[in-house]
Amino acid sequence: MDRDAVLDKMRVYFERKQPPDVLATFATQSPKALLPDSLDVVDFILHIEEATGCEIDINEVGESLMNKNFGELAEEVSRRLATR
């Protein structure tokens, strides 16, 4: 699954939770801003796991969740999925 496909699946999670302007610039948004609570992060990761059919070690992507934007996170998840 390439980066854009992963990004689309991530965006779906926020479709009814974020305003259109945030969704329009989703790739540049920060996970830390849109997922302020650790339980939100868990829920988001579970959504991605279900959408991609692959398990994600939350500790492995923790750094990206803290420091990168969704575009970069999608790229990393795509790369990790490709190695499995």
Binding site: S38, V41, I58, N59, E63, L65, N67
Partner: peptide
Amino acid sequence: RTKLRDFVRFQLNGER
């Protein structure tokens, strides 16, 4: 160090 710092930040993310 970066890995550990990010791990700690992640563990302490959000209100708790």
